[in-house]
Simulated scan of single mutants.
Amino acid sequence: MGKIGIYGSSFDPITNVHLWTANTILNRCKLDRVIFLPCSSKRRDKKMQIEDVHRLNMLHFAIENNEKFIADDYEMNQNAWNISTYETLKYFKSKYKHDTIYFIMGADLLIDIGNGKWGNSDLLVKENKFIVMARNGINMLKAISTSPILRNNDDGETFHLIDKGLAMEISSSYIRDEFSLGGDPRYLLPEACYRYIKEQSLYI
């Protein structure tokens, strides 16, 4: 039985920080694989800057030399109003029946789940395991202890908290802004992705 982390994000575009974060979690948490899961452009709470095909192409370019990294377009292919992390994790647990599935997220999302802002928040926590990355200004232990949803569904193995060494804050939006303003964020993302953006004239 293996251990798989599900790393969801817009990846608009994927950055070197995404890759560094995934690799750090892979090693610290002794995962066998990390699945990069780009979110759907049909979501009402997010607005993508480029078409799905470009985000997915760059994701494949970025991880092509790491056999422990996998790209999956499951959420990209789902209907907007049917997408939820709870249903997504049910899908992956069914697909990888003999493995343990972990959802990778930041501490800011932990607070949102604890406040019941996600669909099926109670069941989501009760039935799944999470790897939670620290965010500046957020006390993860306090977030868990003060939320009935989080603390009442924590069996001691529900949350794997990573509180050191993941505080790099180079975002996809920063890179998009640099491109749109004529900057050159070449060394903030994989070289193949940088070339693809230039060739396809994306983010300008």
Score class of each variant (00 low, 15 high):
residue 182 G to E: 04
residue 42 K to W: 10
residue 36 F to I: 12
residue 35 I to H: 11
residue 107 A to M: 00
residue 43 R to F: 11
residue 190 P to W: 06
residue 23 N to L: 09
residue 151 R to K: 02
residue 162 I to R: 03
residue 91 Y to T: 01
residue 102 Y to H: 02
residue 198 K to T: 12
residue 179 F to P: 05
residue 186 R to W: 08
residue 155 D to F: 00
residue 92 F to T: 03
residue 3 K to M: 04
residue 33 R to P: 15
residue 103 F to D: 03
residue 98 H to K: 09
residue 89 L to I: 04
residue 2 G to T: 05
residue 8 G to K: 05
residue 161 L to G: 02
residue 123 L to E: 03
residue 1 M to N: 00
residue 146 T to A: 12
residue 138 I to R: 08
residue 48 M to C: 08
residue 119 G to C: 13
residue 3 K to L: 04
residue 26 L to D: 14
residue 32 D to S: 14
residue 158 T to D: 01
residue 82 N to W: 10
residue 84 S to C: 04
residue 191 E to L: 07
residue 164 K to E: 02
residue 107 A to D: 00
residue 158 T to V: 00
residue 108 D to E: 03
residue 29 C to A: 10
residue 189 L to M: 11
residue 76 M to Y: 15
residue 165 G to L: 07
residue 133 M to K: 13
residue 78 Q to C: 12
residue 39 C to S: 15
residue 162 I to W: 07
residue 188 L to N: 10
residue 169 E to Y: 09
residue 41 S to A: 12
residue 183 G to C: 07
residue 13 P to G: 06
residue 40 S to V: 09
residue 86 Y to I: 07
residue 168 M to P: 13
residue 73 D to T: 10
residue 31 L to N: 05
residue 113 I to S: 01
residue 190 P to Q: 04
residue 120 N to Q: 04
residue 86 Y to P: 03
residue 162 I to Q: 03
residue 150 L to T: 01
residue 196 Y to I: 14
residue 173 S to K: 07
residue 119 G to M: 11
residue 192 A to F: 06
residue 154 D to A: 02
residue 134 A to R: 10
residue 110 L to V: 05
residue 6 I to E: 13
residue 156 G to N: 01
residue 176 R to M: 05
residue 70 I to W: 05
residue 5 G to N: 14
residue 52 D to A: 11
residue 44 R to H: 11
residue 49 Q to I: 09
residue 28 R to D: 12
residue 87 E to V: 08
residue 45 D to C: 03
residue 17 V to L: 15
residue 72 D to W: 13
residue 148 P to K: 05
residue 180 S to R: 04
residue 109 L to D: 05
residue 4 I to F: 04
residue 9 S to K: 11
residue 98 H to W: 05
residue 36 F to N: 11
residue 94 S to R: 02
residue 201 S to N: 13
residue 86 Y to V: 07
residue 147 S to V: 02
residue 16 N to T: 06
residue 77 N to W: 08
residue 22 A to P: 15
residue 185 P to K: 12
residue 199 E to G: 14
residue 128 N to F: 01
residue 143 A to P: 01
residue 137 G to T: 06
residue 59 L to T: 04
residue 105 M to V: 00
residue 168 M to N: 14
residue 41 S to I: 14
residue 46 K to L: 10
residue 133 M to A: 14
residue 61 F to W: 09
residue 23 N to S: 09
residue 73 D to Y: 12
residue 54 H to W: 15
residue 178 E to Q: 04
residue 161 L to P: 08
residue 78 Q to L: 11
residue 171 S to Q: 07
residue 196 Y to L: 13
residue 141 L to Y: 02
residue 165 G to S: 07
residue 54 H to D: 14
residue 123 L to R: 00
residue 28 R to G: 14
residue 151 R to V: 00
residue 171 S to L: 06
residue 53 V to A: 12
residue 15 T to K: 07
residue 41 S to F: 15
residue 194 Y to W: 05
residue 99 D to Q: 06
residue 181 L to S: 07
residue 96 Y to P: 09
residue 66 N to H: 08
residue 111 I to L: 03
